[in-house]
Design a protein around this nucleic acid. Structure first.
Lengths: 235, 235
DNA sequence: ACCTGAACACCGTTCAAGT
DNA sequence: ACCTGAACACCGTTCAAGT
């Protein structure tokens, strides 16, 4: 074991490796110190407590969001940005859970926000709406990542089918006749991500046309008028 | 301390109360047993291990989704359904985090899914698309709930402002000029929920018109053609 | 300056035993 | 049948001390 100099950065890096390798639950101060070949209390010379250490780990896991300033329409660029966010969240699943308890406002984490807001602003959204729109995409992506990688696709499909098959048909008529489709939706997480992303981008795009000449202040109320307008045919 | 009969249900109920009152981190087998006035090991007569106990707690926290078969358009009913889901997720914040690790497929949890799919099916969506659409709304709501209740609105606004003010202006030009709007978006979580919900419903509504006579199998690719169509004016 | 063992107040769980 | 204390292998952290 070559003795690389101890530092906050190295400790956090090894902790992240340990978390990815054996799960976050296995990251303890004692275990981590042993991994580093030092006494447990040595870590307290670098971090006040475990919480501060975890902050550093989460920050590290977040710092490498690949923010590419790609080409194409604002839709394509925004989609690509969210795919990048999704990818880094997938790379460190435990960090997704940790970030829920400690909302990250570090420069590294805000790089994606900056990029997203820039794209939306360029597309023509006013600042307040760009902020809300980006946040919508962000929350969806986070929700997706939170549920991702819990089990394998095969296992997800199987357990979903089992659970749905066990439901009383009278109380759950729709789910009972949607077993295959629901199981597919659970198993094909990638397809689901793209679907919801596209729905959100559609919704945002629809807002670009409106508000044209006369900017209205404040939040827009739910539009109820259009809802019956077009209703699809049978089935 | 009146000695109500011990049971899985009672143990789970007290555990949920304890979790809501002092935070999930404080729920230990020993602490819970003390709360119930029994020996620690007694709990193991009702649950194989802590994991099984937590399953019961999460299930309990989920069982009371107020699924109302309201009136109005499919948009209104779906919005109301998601507000109900949001509300129960808010009621037991720790359960949100727990459900990420153990995807719930219990009848109680699936009641909302059934209701959502029914509304979408009635609106005219084919089964596969209804499954994807509901899941999109579900993931967004979960993402929102995951970040909710972390701090008070005032604290959220304050810390957001501080973090954004500290950013280097050249690297973060948009965020630097969106401090107020971004802080507002962080502070007004309720408004954010409604915004994203409405965007998703807009996106879904747009899909109802299409696919009319000729149903296409499989996932639809991202439509790139329309993206430049309408672009808002200045600003 | 940098590191650390002993000790304290906690965990979940096994096991063998109590009524 | 239902309950349980002792014991084991773990935690995070304080404190006083080592070099």
């Amino acid at each position: 074991v070559a003795t690389e100099r101890l530092s906050q950065e190295r400790i956090a890096r090894v902790a992240l490796e340990l978390s990815d390798r054996e799960g976050f639950g296995r990251v303890s101060m004692r275990r981590l110190a042993a991994e580093l070949g030092v006494g447990t209390m040595t870590l307290y010379g670098y971090f006040r407590d475990k919480d501060e250490l975890i902050d550093a780990v989460v920050d590290l896991a977040t710092s490498d969001h690949g923010v590419l300033t790609g080409e194409g329409t604002w839709r394509e660029r925004l989609a690509e940005l969210m795919r990048g966010l999704k990818k880094t969240l997938e790379a460190h699943p435990s960090a997704v859970r940790l970030r829920l308890d400690r909302p990250l406002l570090s420069p590294g984490a805000l790089r994606v926000t900056e990029a997203g807001l820039a794209i939306l602003a360029e597309a023509g959204f006013r600042r307040a709406e760009a902020a809300r729109g980006y946040r919508s995409l962000f929350l969806y992506t986070f929700g997706w990542a939170g549920f991702a990688t819990t089990t394998s696709p095969e296992e997800a499909r199987r357990s979903t089918k089992v659970a749905l098959a066990a439901l009383p048909t009278e109380e759950y008529p729709v789910l009972s006749s949607t077993v295959e489709e629901a199981a597919d939706a659970m198993a094909d997480a990638e397809g689901q991500f793209e679907y919801g992303l596209d729905v959100l981008l559609d919704g945002l795009q629809g807002r670009l046309g409106r508000a044209g000449g006369s900017p209205r202040a404040g939040a827009q109320p739910l539009r109820r008028d259009r809802s019956r307008a077009r209703r699809a045919g049978g089935s």
